[in-house]
């Protein structure tokens, strides 16, 4: 025994504790570890509790003096607003760059726009952009944290975290659940991020939709791909209907609304195939009576508004993780920058 006690220290020290490696940006679920994802969800739950109980954690305004800029090249209701609400709840200031009234309209390049915002003193940027990979591109150009608010047909990680939190609240766990995602999977950043995250957390993910809208097997992690919607719904614990993009219907890439509804639209009868306590999710905005029967939105199994509420808690967790505890850069070191 004495021998082993006198052994020299190992040359390579183990990492302290099991703390996940620090996140610099949130560009997608791809690249996130399970422990990082779980830490974000745990933090989101505590921020939600803190808001409900008006706890001291919030009165300390942990991100006071920090500035977050949202830069949205595509329209948004939920994502942008919830980032602004989340920032305010943490004591940070959120500013939106009104893209349609900015120098973008004069042809300014994305990198020049983003670097300008960094020079103006932004501490983090939330970017939504129609080009896949735009968030990764932004991260290469900026030294401040970049949060992907949706990039083309790439990823939408904060939406997936929001949905995972909703499932956790409704069902108490994600691991072992059967999740069916229905619709234009291939071109959906919501589907991609959700499939990757829910599988990372141990769920069994099924993807179903029109043939042209399905990815090749293996493209979305280990998710199962089927043309048979009922097979995906059978015993499902979670059903997620994706928004039909009308512009894609107009180009003939998806069935027209009537045909889509009859073949892929969800109604109360469809949910009977699922587990009795199934959770119905939709990332919004909903095309009522196309992908989801309007009456289902009032059904207690539908968690659409809970999703929206959870969006704020998740975005608080993301902002606090990236900017709190010395993350990002401190505003005080840049206080001489131009005022806003």
């Amino acid at each position: 025994m004495s021998l082993s006690l006198s052994m020299p220290a190992p040359a390579v020290m183990p990492a302290p504790g099991d703390a996940p490696p620090a996140l610099r940006h949130l560009l997608g679920i791809r690249g996130l570890t399970r422990s990082q994802a779980e830490a974000l969800l745990a933090e989101a739950r505590s921020w939600k509790a803190a808001r409900a109980g008006r706890l001291q954690a919030l009165s300390r305004r942990p991100l006071a003096g920090r500035r977050i800029v949202t830069v949205f090249y595509e329209p948004s209701t939920r994502t942008m607003t919830s980032f602004h609400v989340a920032a305010a709840a943490l004591g940070a200031e959120a500013v939106d760059l009104p893209v349609s009234r900015s120098s973008v309209q004069k042809g300014e390049r994305l990198d020049d726009t983003l670097e300008t915002l960094e020079s103006l003193g932004a501490d983090a940027v939330v970017l939504r952009h129609p080009q896949t990979g735009a968030a990764h591109y932004a991260a290469r150009h900026l030294s401040i944290p970049v949060i992907n608010g949706g990039d083309g047909t790439g990823e939408h990680p904060t939406q997936a975290l929001t949905d995972a939190l909703t499932i956790l609240e409704r069902r108490g766990r994600v691991a072992g659940l059967k999740v069916a995602i229905l619709g234009d999977i291939r071109h959906s950043r919501v589907a991609r991020s959700n499939a990757l995250l829910l599988e990372l957390l141990g769920a069994e993910v099924w993807l179903s939709g029109p043939a042209a809208a399905l990815p090749p097997a293996g493209a979305f992690g280990g998710a199962r791909v089927t043309l048979n919607r009922d097979e995906a719904l059978e015993g499902a614990d979670v059903v997620m209907a994706l928004r039909v993009q009308r512009e894609r219907q107009a180009r003939g890439l998806l069935p027209p609304p009537g045909a889509y509804r009859s073949r892929w639209g969800l109604d109360a009868r469809d949910l009977e195939r699922c587990s009795p306590d199934v959770v119905l999710l939709h990332p919004g905005p909903v095309n009522r009576d196309v992908e989801v029967d309007g009456r289902l939105l009032e059904d207690p199994r539908c968690a659409v508004l809970q999703q929206v509420a959870n969006g704020v808690a998740v975005r608080m967790a993301v902002l606090h993780t990236l900017l709190g505890q010395g993350g990002g850069r401190s505003w005080s070191t840049c206080s001489s920058a131009a005022g806003w």
């Binding site: 791809r30 896949t132 990979g133 990039d151 083309g152 047909t153 790439g154 990823e155 291939r186 071109h187 950043r189 991609r192 990815p215 090749p216 293996g218 493209a219 979305f220």
Partner: peptide, 15 residues
Amino acid sequence: GAMHEGAVSAAAGMP
């Protein structure tokens, strides 16, 4: 599109 259509483009959502 922008890259080879295959498993990698589908996984990333690249056209």
